[in-house]
């Protein structure tokens, strides 16, 4: 995976470590570090949840995480990013996603961190299968990646003639 010196992204089957995240984004020029930690909760829509299996297209996910961080860096310059998403089963309390952002000042760190998690939820190729106390499990609905109009044309192969 292409990594920038001030952005580190990964998909991991190992437990996510907040100390690693904080250490990577630490910079003497940056006076603020904001961190988002996504954790498996024990309930969803009235059902008791025992855990979640995270399915991930690892190659595309890492590309998308990097893309999101670069976008954020374009909006909030001089920011540094560590983003890692878990792949596999996690019980309640397990850390599913870890985002650390450092910035010269707190406002940029809050805003950039919020931007990264919101974009991950809409764009990263990650899927959740919830497991319930009765032994049932269910894949959760999500945000469709189906492209529309100009967005589709922007990555068109040029051979199909569909946008001529």
């Amino acid at each position: 995976m292409d990594q920038a010196c001030d952005i580190k992204v990964s998909v991991s089957t190992e437990a996510l470590d907040a100390n690693n995240a904080c250490g990577f984004v630490t910079d003497p020029a940056n006076g603020a570090i904001d961190m988002f930690i996504g954790v498996v909760r024990d309930n969803h829509l009235g059902q008791t949840v025992t855990g979640i299996t995270y399915d991930v297209h690892e190659t595309l996910a890492e590309r998308e995480l990097m893309c999101i961080c670069r976008e954020a860096q374009g909006i909030w310059p001089k920011t540094r990013y560590f983003v890692s998403h878990y792949h596999g089963y996690l019980p309640v309390g397990g850390v599913s996603v870890l985002i650390a952002v450092s910035a010269p000042h707190r406002e940029e760190s809050f805003e950039a961190c919020r931007y990264v998690i919101e974009e991950i939820k809409k764009r990263a190729p990650v899927w959740k299968k919830e497991h319930y106390v009765g032994g049932e499990s269910e894949w959760l609905p999500g945000h469709s990646l189906v492209m529309q109009g100009e967005e589709e044309q922007a990555v068109c192969c040029g051979k199909c003639g569909a946008h001529g």
Partner: peptide
């Protein structure tokens, strides 16, 4: 890949349903 992308040879693809990471 856009809907009109043309498959010319053997290849490996993925089908990605709606996502819900985080």
């Amino acid at each position: 890949l856009p809907q009109g992308y043309v498959i010319e040879g053997d290849m490996r693809l993925s089908i990605l349903p709606p996502v819900c990471g985080g």
